[in-house]
């Protein structure tokens, strides 16, 4: 059963890893992916993340169920932030724990590829000059990254 949190506040990846591995002596590997807000060459003051409350949690849980069916995971944590996020701040954490490294690496990558295209979040740029910029457009390469998992 994965731990899933949708929250405005930052998270601490090291503390989440400690929580995941605590009292789980069978875990031999964890992989933690953290996605950050870029400044896009100094152009951005922040990213605004909108989400669909209720569906965001439900969809991430469905993706996590798929990952847990596919790899022998002993722990899986997903944290996704919403609201205004500034360059250098974390946006998303995927943390996968397993007995061996390959399952942890693959499950973390699978989770991110699916999150990108299936989890109901939308980013909008806030610019350095104080104006609100455009909604970020979805990328075809993200769809391709998801489709290569073939499920």
């Amino acid at each position: 059963m994965a731990t899933i949190r949708i929250q405005p506040q930052p998270f601490d990846a090291a503390a989440e890893t400690a929580a995941l591995t605590a009292e789980r002596g069978s875990i031999g590997a964890t992989v933690a992916f953290t996605g950050f807000c870029r400044d896009e060459g100094g152009r951005l003051s922040a990213l605004e993340l909108e989400h669909y409350p209720g569906m965001a949690e439900a969809e991430i849980a469905r993706i996590a169920d798929q990952a847990e069916a596919r790899w022998p995971l002993m722990g899986l944590t997903v944290i996704h932030r919403f609201g205004l996020i500034h360059p250098g701040e974390p946006i998303v954490l995927v943390l996968a724990g397993s007995a061996h490294r390959r399952a942890a690496f693959e499950a973390a990558e699978f989770m991110m590829d699916y999150l990108k295209t299936r989890a109901p979040f939308w980013k909008r740029e806030h610019l350095k000059d104080g104006t609100v910029g455009a909604w970020v457009e979805a990328k075809d390469c993200d769809d391709a990254a998801m489709e290569r998992w073939g499920s």
Binding site: K116, F121, A138
Partner: peptide
């Protein structure tokens, strides 16, 4: 029922 653009989270 919800309508929305392609998603850009992560």
């Amino acid at each position: 029922i919800a309508f929305f653009p392609p998603m850009t989270g992560g």
